[in-house]
Nucleic acid binder design. Structure first.
Lengths: 320, 320
DNA sequence: AAGCACTATGCACAAACGTGCAGAACGGAA
DNA sequence: TTCCGTTCTGCACGTTTGTGCATAGTGCTT
């Protein structure tokens, strides 16, 4: 009974959230049982019919969020955590809040660029549904590596985004890094690749994590067989601090002359900065160096991170 | 303890609405009692920190809302009502939903034009707080009449808007109608009046009800001593169907040649149509004729009305 | 320092809510 | 029509949440 059920859900949501009736009262109004109303409301939230968002006041005293906001000119969402939480639990919380924060930003006709990695994977698992039209999810960078084509991992993430927002999914079926810059150049002229690149150029939202070269638990990129020994050595001996979508940068935000980027498949930083809404999700204080670089480079317009990392971000700034 | 209390509220709201923790769990995390958390969350909702909104899908089958939307090109919010409700209860519901719907549209630096009348009065009583900066509430039309200066009534409405959004309030201290068009012309050149007019010209949101000449319970305008016998007779014998902010119009949406408007203090229809967001709130099916005129005139971008009126609106259209 | 007015807190109880479960209703397929 | 699988519904129970009240805390005045 999808037709009337949907409109019942809308009605119930209006009465509950907009008029503060109790479920009991709504049940009487809809001539059904209270439990059904409870379920209608669940499905209304579930399907994105009801949107709950938290607008952190932009001016709250000298707090973490506002300090970071002032320093880096980004919209900050600090996820509260308690120190008894471990890495995985923290990631889960951050991902959940990120998913819910992204929801309201997504709209019809959006082109949403999505990177991959453990952070994005976690986020994708917590997305709340929201019905949109003619939206597209486009993969930001290739995911193939020397062992696998990377299909399953990255495409699961993409697929979850797609189904949460009812959007078309456009994969980017190339390796994360080419072995030879020349191959990349050649591929970039292929029409199948051009199509993806042109979508990327028209992105209205980009969502990504950051990799940090010196993280305690190195990101997929640094550990997952994407780069060989030589590459890793070069990285370690350079002043690269991290990456976004497999594009590397230094602490000062610069990326020029980093040869690895010539073989990488992610959007270059200048192009990324063109995107109206660039959402960076970070969990785990050990990513701090990569994060600072990304912020300095102006890669993000919105930052969602856990409290512990936020604290380190500002204390570092104070020291330096 | 406003500083930490506020940030506790934010934290609680994030944990509750964004991460689905129970209040109990949040209480432990904040080292306080569950009841305090309950109260923190109340105040977070209360103060507009948490925004709940319902996005009615724009494409739901052949329903009331979408029929009206298609016909008049407005964003429609139909307020569900049961037929056991009387006029006053319906108005209350509509007003409540209107207030909550308006909330998310208000933002910092907004200039919000507000009319007066029983509908607006009801709406003003249900506004939810939302902190904004440098917003202004500006009165759309004068409220003085032959008995009183209209100060208390209209200014209560304005004041409530102002305090809900933390906005400056700009009253319009003139009568609703001048006795002589010439006086209006003269006053319109006064600098004190000019200031208000210029604010009105820069409005980003306008909120108003409609008056209908043949309503069962005539609006304030037609009954409150704003117009004398002669005026009312002229109206009754003309083809005027209603008014918005004391500016009259015909069923076809036209207003040219209606002499009363030359003495009225509301913004003329062309000017009103310049406003980006024009929110019309209507409760009570007897206002149908005025409403149709207003919609035909393209005065509203958003319409909030009760279900019964919505139903009559489309059935009329079907018949004619 | 004491007194006072006001606000915030936790307790305890009542109200409101979510959900497993069993039965009803529905929608094909035979 | 009957059967079976699926979905929807209401009940009953346990959990979660709101709130009046007494108490503790806070800041301001004298």
């Amino acid at each position: 009974m999808t037709p009337s059920r949907h409109s019942d859900a809308l009605r119930a949501a209006q009465l509950y959230y907009l008029q503060d009736l109790t479920m009991d009262a709504i049940a009487r109004e809809l001539r059904t049982s209270r439990s059904t109303v409870s379920r209608l409301l669940s499905s209304a939230r579930e399907s994105g019919l009801v949107q709950i968002q938290i607008r952190s006041p932009l001016d709250t005293g000298p707090e973490l969020a506002s300090m970071i906001r002032a320093e880096y000119k980004v919209d900050v969402h600090v996820v509260p955590v308690v120190d008894t939480l471990n890495e995985a639990e923290t990631l889960d919380r951050v991902a959940m809040q990120a998913a819910r924060t992204i929801g309201p930003l997504v709209d019809s006709n959006a082109i949403i660029g999505v990177a991959w990695g453990s952070t994005l994977s976690a986020v994708s698992r917590h997305l709340t549904r929201k019905i949109t039209h003619d939206s597209v999810i486009v993969q930001l960078n290739g995911a193939g590596n020397m062992q696998t084509t990377g299909i399953t991992y990255a495409s699961d993430i993409m697929r979850r985004f797609g189904s949460a927002y009812g959007a078309r999914v456009e994969q980017f079926p190339v390796p994360a890094f080419f072995d030879h810059a020349a191959t990349k150049k050649a591929m970039w002229n292929e029409r199948s690749v051009q199509r993806i690149l042109q979508l990327q150029a028209r992105m209205s939202i980009a969502i990504f994590g950051v990799g940090s070269v010196d993280a305690d638990y190195p990101s997929h990129v640094y550990a997952g067989g994407y780069l060989d020994e030589d590459d890793l050595n070069v990285l370690a001996n350079s002043d690269v601090v991290g990456d976004v979508a497999t594009v590397f940068f230094r602490a000062d935000g610069s990326a020029d002359g980093i040869t690895l980027n010539e073989r990488s498949t992610g959007p270059d930083l200048a192009q990324l900065r063109q995107v109206r809404r660039r959402i960076c999700v970070v969990s785990g204080a050990s990513k701090i160096n990569g994060l600072r670089g990304a912020l300095t480079a102006g890669l993000a317009t919105d930052l969602i991170l856990d409290e512990a990392t936020a604290r380190r971000l500002v204390s570092f700034d104070g020291v330096s």
